[in-house]
Design a protein around this nucleic acid. Structure first.
Lengths: 242, 242
DNA sequence: GTTTATAAAAATGTGCACATTTGGCATGGC
DNA sequence: GCCATGCCAAATGTGCACATTTTTATAAAC
């Protein structure tokens, strides 16, 4: 039975990954607000694993720059400055310019068809007012663009940027009425179909500046505190009073 | 006296970093050949620190994708395939295309002057036949380009790519007579001065393809084994027989 | 009432002992 | 002679106890 607790110094490789995924998921989902302290003892208690296990995961997330590790002071969810956000958006913009430049050399009907299908999905979500789907699909569009190049390095870099901005939206007005305009995505596809690099880049640039302009600093940071509530919802794992 | 060994469970924050830097340096310098196994006990012995210390550093390097970590089987220097190398070069190419696109919007005399000065340095190194300096300056040129944008995310990504390719050159013919043509760098600067994006990108692209074409797979991988020799040369730290 | 100093409590960092797993090697069978 | 099997040594993974540092709470002084 898998629910059985390991006895002593028994190996359980899947447990590391489970904890890692749980925290990462909460981070990407925006459940962990910026500035939240992630202490080891409570987490060990919540997940029902040893403190060393938690410790390892936390340091790994720190190495990936998803958590801010301060020596002797533990892990915190980073609180990005407005400059940080701009930096990420600019990087995304610059990267996509390069991607589009390379992409026009390889456009074929299959790619255009795939992107068009995606646009259809996006429009459908927009017309039926599905916020969540719209946001998700909007990000997926840019992922499709990089993945069309089939380059693992570039895909990973974009994933990095997206994960970072997902943390940021929880601080800098995540969702107003700004459903990342589908028409702008459509214009990019159009430019690609015409093999017009300059226009594709120009449209993409405008698109990003458009999204970026909607950001505004929100001083009153929530900074969630009840970790049990956050992870309890994600993983209903039983905890022990020790 | 700093050479004193810590007594028991004493904190020594600088030691982690020292070991990390030593291994990273050896990796970037190409002293650690691809496929080399990095076992914990020998390293702990060489650096004179506890095994846990080594362990932490190794896992950190693994999280940064600089080492290949296999569960229960330790750490190895990754042995990149030819596709991996092409992927890195392509990513660098694509990234620089984006950088150049963004850069032409911000070119000023100061930047041109700075790059020109760098070219002078490169030519000087080339004419006096200084291989090491040439290679180093050649890479630095591309670093200068990204850093001109002042974007931390992009700079870090480039650093990532460069560190990865530095490991690769030890497998795929690191240095023949291919001193990354200075003239091609000069052509990029020229195009920048003229605000000609298309030409800058085209030249850059040709430049990378040129470098990439020099690669060839070398099956007879050396796979260095004597860790004491590798790190003994870098860090003459005394080791203890335990 | 605000601030500073001190002590207690909690949290982080580290070495160590031991469990588990892997790799090599010898022995035996075909 | 070659391959399979079991044993032994070495390496990796993990919990635990304890040292160190940080944080909080309390009290004293201005």
């Amino acid at each position: 039975m898998a629910t059985q607790r390991r006895r002593n110094g028994k190996a359980n490789p899947a447990e590391d990954e489970a904890v890692y995924q749980a925290i990462l998921h909460a981070l990407l989902e925006g459940k962990l607000k910026a500035g939240t302290k992630l202490a080891e003892p409570p987490l060990a208690d919540i997940f029902g694993v040893s403190r060393e296990r938690i410790r390892k995961v936390l340091h790994r997330l720190g190495a990936e720059r998803r958590l801010e590790m301060i020596p002797n002071r533990g892990a915190r969810v980073p609180r990005p400055t407005l400059d940080d956000v701009r930096s990420v958006y600019e990087a995304h913009r610059v990267l996509e310019a390069g991607v589009l430049t390379q992409l026009v050399r390889h456009v074929d009907d299959a790619l255009i068809e795939k992107l068009t299908a995606h646009l259809t999905e996006e429009r459908a979500a927009a017309t039926r007012g599905d916020r969540a789907a719209s946001v998700r699909l909007s990000g997926a569009f840019h992922v499709h663009l990089v993945e069309a190049l089939g380059n693992a390095e570039l895909s990973r870099f974009l994933a990095d940027l997206l994960s970072r901005s997902s943390v940021m939206v929880s601080v800098y007005e995540p969702a107003t009425d700004s459903i990342c305009a589908v028409d702008e995505h459509g214009a990019i596809v159009e430019a690609l179909r015409a093999r017009d690099v300059a226009r594709a880049i120009a449209v993409s640039r405008e698109h990003f500046l458009h999204v970026e302009s909607r950001l505004h600093l929100d001083d009153a940071v929530p900074a969630s505190e009840d970790l049990t509530a956050v992870f309890g919802a994600v993983k209903p794992k039983r905890r022990k009073g020790r």
